[in-house]
């Protein structure tokens, strides 16, 4: 589904991704973990074509994404839904409009009634019925996350990327959100990439783990193999030890 070969990316003259080689099969569920500022969000945005790598190949569903000019990336991005770290809800749109926005853009001729019905159905799925007319500024952190998830998933895109879906949320809300993501994944059989700092909760959700440190992959494999990884950075991070290279 997605193939990265030797991806390198620099932002403001600073290397952010270095020689990232990663293959994601359709239908698999990946978790990206790593210390802060290790390039996790940048990698997710690169997969969407929001950053163009300086070197390497990025093939998404058979298409060389970096080789495409910006207007032609539309057809690749339509296969992806993304929840951003800060939710990226549009301030100038109400909750219902935010959720319906991607659908309306992808299907300009879809009748308004159907758009509203689809958005309401998705809001019901994330437990936010009755919040349709609220502004994003009126929502709590957990509600914003759920609106972001509803918006990311409304088009039933084959690839879903969740950047910190549970950051700053309490354990109960975290469990509810992972239950919701699991339900959506089972229903649509989508390929999922989730970034999270909440390692225990994330490990319950994913099949595979990619560990990034300073833009380089330190572990890439099944979730169950993470404990056995002998890389000192991974070892220290996974166990939460204070002594070590980090």
């Amino acid at each position: 589904m997605i193939h990265c070969d030797g991806l390198c990316l620099q932002l403001t003259h600073r290397p952010v991704l270095a020689d990232v080689t990663w293959h994601i099969e359709a239908g698999s569920v990946w978790g990206i973990i790593g210390p802060p500022a290790s390039g996790k969000s940048v990698l997710a945005k690169t997969l969407c074509g929001l950053f163009t790598p300086r070197q390497g190949r990025l093939i998404v569903d058979g298409v060389d994404l970096p080789g495409l000019p910006e207007p032609d990336r539309v057809r690749v991005r339509r296969k992806m839904g993304m929840l951003f770290q800060n939710n990226a809800l549009f301030d100038f749109l109400r909750v219902l409009e935010n959720v319906a926005f991607p659908l309306a853009r992808q299907n300009p001729k879809m009748p308004q009634d159907e758009l509203v019905a689809r958005a309401q159905e998705r809001l019901r799925a994330v437990g936010l019925s009755g919040s349709e007319e609220k502004w994003p500024s009126e929502l709590s952190g957990g509600m914003k996350k759920r609106v972001g998830i509803a918006r990311a998933t409304i088009c039933n895109a084959p690839v879903l990327i969740y950047d910190e879906p549970t950051a700053g949320l309490d354990p109960v809300t975290t469990s509810k959100i992972y239950d919701l993501l699991t339900g959506l994944r089972q229903k649509h059989a989508s390929t999922v990439i989730a970034i999270s700092s909440d390692i225990p909760a994330l490990r319950h959700f994913v099949d595979h783990i990619l560990f990034l440190h300073q833009g380089r992959i330190r572990y890439c494999g099944p979730e169950s193999g993470l404990e056995a990884c002998e890389d000192p950075v991974v070892y220290q991070f996974v166990r939460g030890q204070t002594e070590g290279p980090l």
Partner: peptide
Amino acid sequence: TMVVTEQIDGLRALSID
């Protein structure tokens, strides 16, 4: 504020210039 809160990236991710 839209840049800082990733709303501009959100638009681009939705293929909106």
